[in-house]
């Protein structure tokens, strides 16, 4: 498998992605001809009302849900060609993609540090090395003091930071976030958004953030909007209220 980090300027590239659910009278087009290019180190916001197709797009790029047609490239590697997978999706996700969701989505029976550690161990790191790296990340995100607490003992903001730590653990070339600040107050929300920007710029990762939060749009390099399954690009507006 080629290394997505060195050979292609685009971390993410989608070409005319279309997703159709059902057929005949029950057919619903969730996404139509959605094309996007995200450079390494670029942070992209994806805006749109509920049901506009944002999550469908994100799951296609995250190699979870295949599109009905269109193509997905991650780091230049063709991953979906229409509904057909062109690589081992699970392995590819593990190595190259980090996910953050609206809810923190931590594994309840693991502690904060173990939630990060598991992502590293799944990628072949030894337990000791994974634990060191996980602790560094938690420290970087300001939750090292809660490393040995289970998710139920953490606040929403702390859980979200642990989830971010897990998403960044394997230094992914792509970070996908689906409304990651929905459960946070505006201050914490902005911190998380800034963190994504920092990761993108420092690690050269392509970041797509689905958000409703208009207050932090100044952080993003590019903004896409979706409505009724259609995607369009607009220029970032730094001081938008």
């Amino acid at each position: 498998m080629s290394s997505p980090k060195t050979q292609n300027p685009f971390a993410i590239e989608t070409q005319e992605l279309t997703k159709v659910y059902g057929s005949g009278n029950t057919e619903v087009i969730a996404m139509r001809d959605a094309s996007m290019q995200v450079r390494r180190g670029e942070v992209v916001a994806l805006l749109g009302p509920s049901g506009s197709g944002k999550s469908t797009f994100l799951t296609a790029v995250g190699l979870i849900n295949p599109p009905t047609s269109g193509r997905v490239f991650i780091g230049g590697q063709l991953t979906f060609d229409g509904p057909r997978a062109r690589t081992n999706l699970r392995t590819y996700r593990r190595r190259h993609i980090g996910f953050v969701f609206q809810k923190s989505n931590l594994i309840p029976f693991l502690t904060a540090i173990e939630n990060v550690q598991i992502a590293l161990e799944l990628n072949g790191q030894t337990s000791a090395a994974a634990r060191r790296r996980a602790l560094e990340l938690l420290d970087y995100l300001g939750v090292a003091d809660r490393a040995d607490n289970r998710p139920s003992m953490l606040s929403g903001g702390q859980q979200q930071r642990v989830a971010v730590a897990r998403a960044l653990a394997n230094q992914p070339s792509v970070v996908l976030a689906d409304e990651p600040t929905a459960a946070l107050d505006s201050h914490r929300g902005r911190q998380v958004m800034e963190l994504f920007a920092q990761v993108a710029h420092e690690q050269g990762a392509g970041v797509i953030v689905v958000t409703h939060d208009q207050r932090a749009l100044d952080i993003f390099d590019t903004i896409y909007e979706m409505e009724d399954g259609l995607m369009r690009k607009r220029q970032p507006q730094t001081n938008e209220p």
Binding site: R90, T91, R94, I107, F109, I118, A119, L122
Partner: peptide, 15 residues
């Protein structure tokens, strides 16, 4: 939910 999450972060079936 935890199993789905493990799959999402790329855990192999063997795990």
């Amino acid at each position: 939910h935890s199993i789905a999450l493990l799959k999402l972060i790329g855990a192999p079936n063997a795990v």
